[in-house]
Design a protein around this nucleic acid. Structure first.
Lengths: 346, 346
DNA sequence: TTGAAAGCGATACCAG
DNA sequence: CTGGTATCGCTTTCAA
């Protein structure tokens, strides 16, 4: 039960060092002694004390995860990917919700430091760059969707938002949509700016003047999607399609459209972003741009453990920036637009 | 930076013991020495090493949370309640996903034990009772929604499922519904059995023979809600209302109903259970029985920390069983039933 | 190959 | 009230 390696050594009739060697798989132990140790461990139901091990080795086999909010389906799926990978590698995970709040982030970072976590996955940091740099000198950090274009020696993982918006617009374009409005994210976020740039570039590349309904900025919750859609729909020149920066806002937009007695997709098409679970449950089911949330989580862990590994063995590998691809998921919230031209078979 | 209390003692010109006393808020330190220590801490940017403290005190100020799946909105909201409370009390949280799998649960329990967590919140354990008892002798455990009626010295937190179903049925009854079908949970779960008992009791208390469409058992995901609804709708004697064991299955049922060209709530009313975020986003918005998920998380932490406290001070308080209340959230998936009798003003 | 002994960084006791 | 010291359980030299 509550016993130590010393007890194991005594019962097994070997020394403490030998027990340690067996536990750590060091091959210099004779088979006879191995067996003695294993038997003693079994008999005493021994399990090692991580605090002691951590104190000595300065490695805890724990990592920290800081995300804005675990109760947001986007982040919970990411977190699931992280946790599964971490677990598979024999690590454990500290969960921290930052609420997009720099002070809370800091507090967690300090706590994780004191707990000697081996590394940290930081999703959407809100701290000033210098501070992140400062922390990153003290433990390995992987930055996910940094929100700003920082390059500070940390590994960075992001999603190709430029591509995602191109995929959405190309799809709508092929369905004959031209007047396409956008409900974007907050202006301070890098991924949001990427998407807006992509939106503008698209129409330029099609040699088409920018659609009148234009861009509205929301806050990623469904209320703001609802509000933005209402502003857009109040304009004279109504869009035939709306593209939203996340699924929740897309669903809010659908609500706004339906409340006006219009139909999605018959009157107005809507396309979302993220592909959270709700997307296949709402009515109509939502055509959307999938972000590889779970895979992103797995990849973050892989990156982080590599970095920890390399840091431990002294050789510092160069920081890696990974950009993951999006994918369009076709469901029922987009249909052929008959307003602009003659109907075309699809 | 990377310095110890010894360094602080040296720089501050005091002894190690004094530094420790300051850090632990022991009031016997003179103000002059306090200041010296504080200044030294500041100057060195010292932060304590939790591994060492844990090793010595056998307390880590960490707790573990084992839930089936963080990516399920029901559990993620619960987890959010847990994490917020834990954080407020100066603890940190290990997140573990059991996937309703006893072997995984065990593995996590062992890991948490080695990490010397001060306690554990275990949501829906799938291990045999004796095993839980065994573990509970080694650290404080709070059991949430145990799934079986076990009484083993642990604190237990559950939701009054009997009440919840009564609330739903009473509401439907007042809207003139009589033929009410139920999509229940799996048969092995206690809360599921409670709900079925409540369903049966209700009709007995109303002196009404049990409705023909009866009960179907699902698996809590929306596909199984869809399948169960189809089985129910294929029967000769169609229900006028369906009550589901969670919101996801309710939404699946709504899909099945709509695919048959029927309307919710005009033709068939549906009522859910849980009140997850999606409930207010789907079409129609879902009338449902709210479980106080976040509050349950907070309460679990309060219970656990009390128990840890009492265990540390030697006095063992009796295990506490808390039953939280449900609440009906009225939205748009239920309407007055005109089939059975004359229309009645509501 | 194995065993003895020196820490890791804190806490807590006891003497002064 | 303070300072010295043993101790928590493990890893890691270093001799033997």
């Amino acid at each position: 039960m509550n016993c130590t390696m010393k007890d194991v050594a005594r019962v097994g009739g070997v020394s403490l060092g030998t027990v340690s060697n067996v536990l750590n798989g060091i091959p210099t132990v004779t088979e006879k002694n191995r067996q003695k140790v294993l038997a003693a461990i079994q008999q005493l139901n021994f399990s090692p004390n991580y605090a002691a091990r951590t104190l000595k080795t300065r490695r805890s086999r724990c990592i920290g995860l800081i995300i804005p909010d675990i109760n947001n389906p986007f982040y919970s799926e990411f977190a699931r990917g992280v946790e599964d990978s971490v677990q598979a590698m024999g690590y454990n995970l500290f969960l921290c919700n930052s609420d997009r709040n720099a002070a809370k982030e800091r507090e967690y970072m300090d706590a994780l430091l004191e707990r000697m976590v081996d590394g940290l996955i930081l999703f959407k940091t809100h701290m000033p760059v210098e501070e992140v740099v400062d922390f990153s000198s003290r433990f390995s950090i992987v930055l996910v969707d940094t929100g700003r274009d920082i390059n500070i020696g940390c590994d960075i993982i992001k999603v190709d938002d430029y591509l995602g918006v191109q995929q959405a617009l190309e799809y709508l374009w092929n369905f004959n949509h031209r007047r396409i409005a956008m409900i974007a994210g907050t202006k301070d976020s890098l991924s949001s700016l990427d998407r807006i740039r992509s939106y503008n570039d698209f129409f330029i590349s099609k040699k088409y003047s920018l659609p009148a309904p234009g861009i509205q900025h929301g806050h990623y919750d469904w209320h703001s999607g609802y509000d933005c859609a209402n502003i857009i729909l109040d304009r004279e020149n109504q869009p035939t399609a709306i593209i939203a920066a996340n699924d929740l806002m897309a669903i809010g937009a659908i609500k706004a459209i339906q409340e006006r007695g219009l139909s999605v997709p018959d009157d107005i098409s809507v396309i979302g972003y993220d592909d959270i679970d709700i997307a296949s449950l709402c009515t109509p089911t939502l055509t959307t741009i999938r972000q590889p949330k779970y895979k992103m989580g797995e990849h973050s862990v892989r990156c982080l453990l590599n970095r920890i590994e390399s840091r431990n063995s002294g050789q510092d590998i160069a920081p890696i920036i990974t950009t993951l691809k999006t994918e369009i998921i076709v469901r029922n919230s987009v249909s052929f637009c008959e307003t602009n031209t003659q109907r075309r078979s699809v």
